[in-house]
Amino acid sequence: MTILVTGGAGYIGTHTCIELIKAGYDIVVVDNFSNSKPEALERVCEITGHNIISYKTDIQNKQELEKIFSQHNIEAVIHFAGLKAVGESVQLPLTYYQTNIMSTLTLCEVMKKYDVKNLVFSSSATVYGATDQVPILEESPLNPVNPYGRTKHMIEEVLRDLVKSDNNWSIALLRYFNPVGAHESGEIGEDPTGIPNNLMPYISQVAVGKLESLQVFGADYKTVDGTGVRDYIHVVDLAQGHIKALEKIIDTNGIEAYNLGTGNGYSVLQVISAFEKVSGIKIPYSIGERRPGDAALCYADVSKAKEDLKWGARKGIEDMCQDSWRWQRKYPNGYSQKSIKIYSN
C-alpha cells in the first residue's frame, strides 16, 4: 500500500516515514522544504535502508499534485504540510490562513478526483485554546486563541463537512500535545529555524552552548512548582500513533478526533531537571513574566486513542530528554544544507 506523506521532511514527518517503512508501507513524500531540509529524508533512507520517492513541490500547486497522484497508486494520505509557529501566525495571519487552509483544500480536491478518501490529518491541541480544565477530552470546547490554532480548527470543520457530503471518506484528526525527543539513532530530530519556539529544543541549545540561558515564562501558577505544566510526548510515540490511525481509517468510514499525548503533565522546571539528569549539564534559567494566553495546566485525556486505536505512549520524560540531547550533541547545528539526489520534481 502506498501512502502519500505531505510535509514528510519535517520533524514529525520524518519520524513517521520511518515508522511507515518499518510497518511495510510504500511512501511518497511531498515537501516544499520551506521549513525542512532534504538531508532529513536522506537520513531516513540511511536509518531504514530504503530509498524514498520524494517531490519538491508545494501542495497548493494543483497541477503538480495531480501529476504525483497520476504517477503513483496512492491509497491514503498523511497530511503534515503547513506552517506551524504560533508566534509567527500572530504576525502573519493571512499567510497562515492562505497556506494551511488553501493547501488542504487543494489536497482534498485532488484526493477526491483520484478517489483517494483515506486521510490522517495533523491537527493540534491548540484547537482547545487556553483552558485549565484538565485532562482535556476530545469533546472539550474548541476555542483556539491564535491564527495557527484557528487554521487547524477550520480545517477540522472543513473535513467534517467533507465527510457529511460523502460518507466514503475516512478521516482521523490527530490533536498533538507537545512533541519532543528524537530518533534513538540521533540522526534525525527537531531542527528549528532561528531561536526555538518550543521548550525542549531551547533547553538543548542552551546545553550545547548555542544559547546562553533559558527564560521561564511565569513561576506563580497554581502548579507543583509554579511553572506551567504541559503534556510532552516523544515524537516516536507520536509517529507510531499515526500508524495506528492509518490502520483505523483504512478499515472504517467517517471522521474521528484523537488526542495524542501521554496523559501526564510535566512542569517547565521538571523538564529542566530531567534534562540536567540525563545530560549532566546545568541549565541556567531566569524567571520572567507570564505570557498572555498561557494556561497553567494542559494535558490530555488519551483514553479514546487507547481504546479505538490500541495506542499509548511508552516513553517517559527522561527518554524524551535523552534522545533530544543525543541529537543536539551529535548535530549541534542541525541538518546541513548539502544537496542530495533522493527526490525528483
Score class of each variant (00 low, 15 high):
T126S: 15
M102W: 04
K84R: 12
S89H: 06
K84Q: 11
A130L: 11
T126Y: 13
K117Y: 05
N118K: 15
E66A: 09
M111S: 01
M102Y: 11
T104F: 06
H79T: 08
V90N: 07
V77S: 03
F80Q: 01
Y128P: 00
V127Q: 07
K113W: 03
G87A: 15
I136P: 03
L105I: 15
S89T: 13
K113Y: 05
Y114L: 06
K113P: 06
F121V: 02
E64Y: 02
L65V: 03
S122T: 15
E88H: 15
I78A: 10
S70R: 14
V134S: 07
L92I: 09
E88N: 10
Y114F: 15
M111H: 04
S70Q: 10
V90P: 03
I78M: 12
S123R: 02
K113E: 12
E109A: 10
I101Q: 08
S124F: 08
A85F: 08
H72L: 04
S70C: 10
S123W: 13
Y96A: 03
S124R: 08
S123Q: 02
H79R: 06
P93D: 13
K117I: 08
D132F: 06
V77H: 00
T126C: 11
G129V: 13
V116M: 08
E66P: 11
S89G: 13
